[in-house]
Design a protein around this nucleic acid. Structure first.
Length: 895
RNA sequence: GCGCGAGUAGCUCAGCGGUAGAGCGACUGGUUUACACCCAGUUGGUCGGCGGUUCAAUCCCGUCCUCGCGCACCA
């Protein structure tokens, strides 16, 4: 055995050591040729330039637990890692840097040069999150690491674009889209988040009716800066107040123009004044009214959210929010602003850039989702199981009313759309109102490879939404687009579990299911486990702005990766958010130390150097508990209750093993103890430790591997590493009958319960420390020969077994499972104190008895309750009844 | 407005029809053959409110309240 261990576990040295050994020995490789049952997970690819946060820790620890457990069940495991190019996020980081360091925009560099810069940035920062995952202990097959911009992967993107285009599902059109004025690109509906605006204003203004002297129409709006784009006002056709106005015109104040009054059902007569100004270029609903009424569309914004020439010279170049104030002032000056009210509404924000998006008409590529029916059915009938189950509904609802997906982005970093326009017609083609495979002529080329005479063509400049690459992840990481099949895919697809956050159920999960059916003809994964979101103590989301997001690497440094993993999982209720508190991690660290020290204690007892004698009841008991633990873990894992698994492991070790078993076993290591007894106990300790390390390994891989090697368990099993050792089917201790086990468990439970009562007695007389305590036990007809262990556990100098013991009046006594336990206190007898204590206990017991009696006295109960419940009540009645009698007697004896 | 989730000890959460549990905290005591990142003990709860079903409800049903999330609307 190795040198004596230090008092506290040192994760900083141990953890990286084992990680390197695992990697060097190729332990994480998914064997596509193996003949074991396959188990696979694809990692939700983090942003390539991202940094690990607690959400990642939670998510990836769960995946690691699943992967490690599967390995220890003898399966062939593939956990396939990789990263995502994260279009907008990465591009804007590099643009920011460019602006700061060189005062340049991407346009100053040009597409090619700029992309070089991004690749440089990626090379420089791209490895960080991967190395952080390694520090956490993640057992990913790094030999298969993928990146969404890898060549093979990129070809996949082109292929599916071509497939979908040819199928008629991808088309180009001029539509109202969500435009981000900061990132200067279109966004999908999913990338827009609604944020309530507390300080918004509702402006009431009036437009004059054309051709009438002094007639005005009142209109309420939140966006006076779009007045210049108004091309109509609208009222509800049923609204009698304005019935005569429909068909007439009103005067737009600036630039002054006559605009028609139209009727539309969409108008809510109750809202504001019941009159809506219609700005088809800047509002989705207005756009539709515009189309229906054939209204002119005037776009008064530049792409960056400033106003353009159409807004008039005094607004040109002005920011949209400034323009709002200026427009209001102008109205006021014209006497057309009636009043301004405080108002609360919600405004769509760009998820990434965190600025209000602008509805904008522009030319974009769209996708009609494929295989939506297969996807809906798979989840509805649990071919793909969602956990927690309630996410099924969210999924079904979204799928029920999805809109076409805007897949084009006006960015450079990403997969450029594989569409070419013949040079001389490029401009004309790109301005077509709509375009799809059916309408495109030979002047448009869509293909994986560029056209042969590329110099005669112009390629579409847009790139695809990052999620358009992510939805292929489960299979595009396993085979190339040219291969029909690959060994890896054949073995590991569909994947077993997907672990992800519920916030990307639409972005990613739903779309992956569709893509799985579309290109692989089957589901991409069988189970989806949605983690909760990690929040701070005030239940706020972790965010950079709030500074409430601790760096997991700091925590690993301070407490160890195992501690962090265990603690987060123990505190993460399945399906609910996790409230993070550093105290949790401390608990994890303490647990690691506890395991370390219990192992160290074993180490200090030396080797087994005699033939083991019969196992003690305590040994049999702990083995029985271990077996219960094992089956409880099975159940918890089956339900993906990771917090429960952690709880069970923690409780077994700390409570059952350390606090009870080890303490009861210490007598076997005394100098005068029988060598066979010592040997038997050591054997039990080894057996329990060995099995427990196996069970704990998925949660705390490093410390368990360290102890596994320290105790040389690795010499007993075939593979070198615990991480690759299959948990044996056989019970921990063999040759013990079920009956022996049951008897030992019952006996030990009685002893432990009695110990607790005796400790209680000691404490209530303030004798916690005293060594000169003697207990007398009257086994009351039974027999009790465990006085030594009893004395050790209670903390007494001597325990005397004396049937029929006659205590002096006032001697404290506890009624226990093993009999009556007396605590004679020389010179300290206080009859009144004992009377008080017993009276209190009598009250408690009496209450219990009354409860049971009233139940049993109720005929409704006795006639309707099931037999076993009644029997249980009878037993309880007897138990409390005799206790009450005894207590009464004892109090009476006090005089 | 629609849907989902949550409300149990001071805090974080288990339990989900038959005696209310854990960890942390607080308090008291402790150098017992590993561990103070420890040990022992104590404290602490009309299980959000009101109704109903049942012999029996924290658990099932209805309803209301509070909080969180998603979707829709938001001139």
């Amino acid at each position: 055995m190795a040198d004596e261990s230090s008092k506290a576990y040192q994760p900083g040295e141990v953890e990286p050591k084992w990680y390197s050994k695992w990697v060097e020995s190729d332990c994480f490789r998914g064997d596509e040729k193996g003949d074991g049952e396959p188990y696979s997970i694809v990692i939700p690819p983090p942003n390539v330039t991202g940094i690990l946060h607690l959400g990642h820790v939670l998510n990836n620890t769960i995946q690691d637990i699943l992967a490690r457990r599967a390995r220890m069940q003898g399966k062939d495991v593939l956990w396939l890692p990789g990263t995502d190019h994260a279009g907008i996020a990465t591009q804007s980081k590099v643009e920011q840097k460019l602006r700061k360091e060189e005062q340049k925009t991407r346009h100053d560099l040009g597409r090619e040069k700029f992309l070089e810069k991004v690749w440089e940035w990626k090379e420089e920062h791209g490895g960080i999150i991967i190395s952080q995952l390694k520090r956490l202990g993640c057992s990913c097959d790094w030999s298969r690491e993928r990146f969404t911009m890898d060549e093979d992967y990129s070809r996949w993107i082109s292929k599916i674009f071509v497939d979908l285009y040819e199928e008629g599902l991808i088309y180009r059109g001029k539509r109202m889209v969500n435009w981000c004025p900061k990132s200067l690109t279109a966004l999908s509906d999913e990338e827009v988040i609604m944020k309530p605006q507390k300080k918004a204003k509702l402006y009431y203004m009036r437009y004059r009716v054309a051709g009438e002297e002094d007639r005005w129409v009142e209109i309420a709006t939140t966006r006076p800066e779009t007045i210049m784009g108004d091309t109509a006002v609208a009222v509800n056709p049923k609204d009698e107040r304005y019935a005569d106005l429909v068909g007439k015109s009103v005067i737009r104040p600036f630039p002054e123009a006559e605009i028609p009054v139209v009727a539309d059902d969409h108008i809510d007569p109750e809202f504001g004044t019941g009159v809506l100004k219609v700005t088809p270029a800047h509002d989705k609903a207005d756009f539709e009214i515009g189309v229906k009424n054939d209204l002119e569309i005037i776009d008064v914004f530049n792409p960056d959210g400033t106003l353009n020439a159409l807004a008039g010279p005094e607004f040109e170049g002005m920011d949209r929010f400034k323009a709002r104030d200026v427009a209001a002032e102008k109205l006021e000056a014209m006497g057309q602003l009636i009043r301004v009210e405080d108002y609360q509404n919600s405004v769509g924000f760009s998820e990434r850039a965190d600025v209000p998006i602008e509805p904008r008409i522009s030319m974009q590529w769209f996708l009609k989702y494929p295989c939506t029916e297969e996807a809906a059915a798979a989840v509805a009938n649990d071919e793909i199981v969602f956990r927690p189950e309630h996410h099924k509904k969210t999924f079904a609802k979204w799928l029920g009313d999805i809109q076409d997906w805007c897949i084009s982005r006006q960015l450079w970093w990403g997969h450029q759309i594989p569409v070419w326009y013949r040079k001389e017609k490029a401009e004309e083609l790109q301005n077509l109102e709509s375009l799809d495979a059916a309408s495109a002529g030979s002047d448009i080329y869509v293909g994986i490879e560029p056209p042969a005479d590329e110099e005669n063509w112009v390629r579409d400049g847009d790139v695809l939404d990052t999620w358009f690459s992510s939805w292929l992840w489960p299979f595009a990481t396993m085979r190339t687009s040219e291969e029909e099949e690959s060994e890896t895919l054949a073995k590991f697809y569909p994947t077993s579990d997907l672990v992800t956050g519920p916030d990307i159920i639409f972005f990613w999960v739903a779309r992956m299911i569709m893509a799985g059916y579309r290109w692989q003809g089957e589901l991409p994964f069988k189970n989806v486990y949605f983690t909760g979101i990690v929040r701070d103590r005030q239940a706020r989301k972790m965010s950079k702005q709030l500074g409430n997001s601790p760096d997991p690497l700091d925590l690993i440094e301070k407490y160890g990766a195992d501690a962090l993993r265990f603690a987060l999982l123990k505190g993460a209720p399945s399906g609910a958010d996790l409230k993070y508190d550093e105290k949790l991690i401390e608990e994890g660290r303490n647990f690691a130390t506890k395991i370390w020290n219990a192992a160290r204690y074993r180490e200090m007892q030396g080797t087994v150097d005699a033939d083991p004698g019969e196992s003690s009841i305590y040994a049999i008991n702990i083995v029985a508990k271990l077996e219960t633990l094992q089956s409880d873990l099975e159940k918890a894992y089956a339900d993906y209750k990771f917090n429960e698994v952690a709880q069970l492991l923690y409780e077994f070790w700390w409570n059952n093993y350390c606090d009870w078993f080890l303490e009861s076993a210490k007598g076997d290591f005394a100098d005068d103890a029988a060598p066979e007894a010592k040997a038997a106990t050591l054997a039990t300790m080894d057996a329990v430790l060995e099995r427990f390390l196996m069970l704990l390994h998925p949660y705390m891989p490093h410390i368990t591997e360290e102890l596994w090697a320290k105790f040389e368990f690795n010499q007993k099993f075939d593979p070198e590493f615990l991480m690759n050792t299959a948990i044996p089917e056989q019970p921990v201790l063999q040759g013990i009958t079920r009956q022996q086990m049951d008897e030992a468990v019952e006996q030990v439970a009685a002893i432990y319960e009695s110990v607790s009562r005796a400790r209680n007695l000691k404490a209530s007389y303030g004798l916690a420390a005293s060594k000169d305590i003697k207990f007398y036990i009257d086994p009351e007809g039974g027999k009790f020969d465990e006085s030594e262990v009893f004395g050790r556990l209670v903390g007494a100098k001597e325990v005397i077994i004396e049937p029929g013991y006659q205590a002096e009046k006032g001697v404290p006594v506890a009624i226990c499972a093993i009999g009556k336990v007396y605590l004679p206190l020389e010179g300290l007898i206080d009859v009144e104190a004992e009377r008080e204590r017993l009276t209190k206990e009598l009250k408690k017991s009496g209450d219990e008895l009354k409860k049971v009696e009233s139940k049993l006295g109720n005929e409704n109960f006795t006639s309707r309750a099931p037999e076993h419940v009644i029997q249980e009540m009878e037993e309880r009645k007897e138990h409390w009844g005799s206790r009450v009698e005894e207590l009464k007697q004892m109090i009476e004896n006090l005089g």
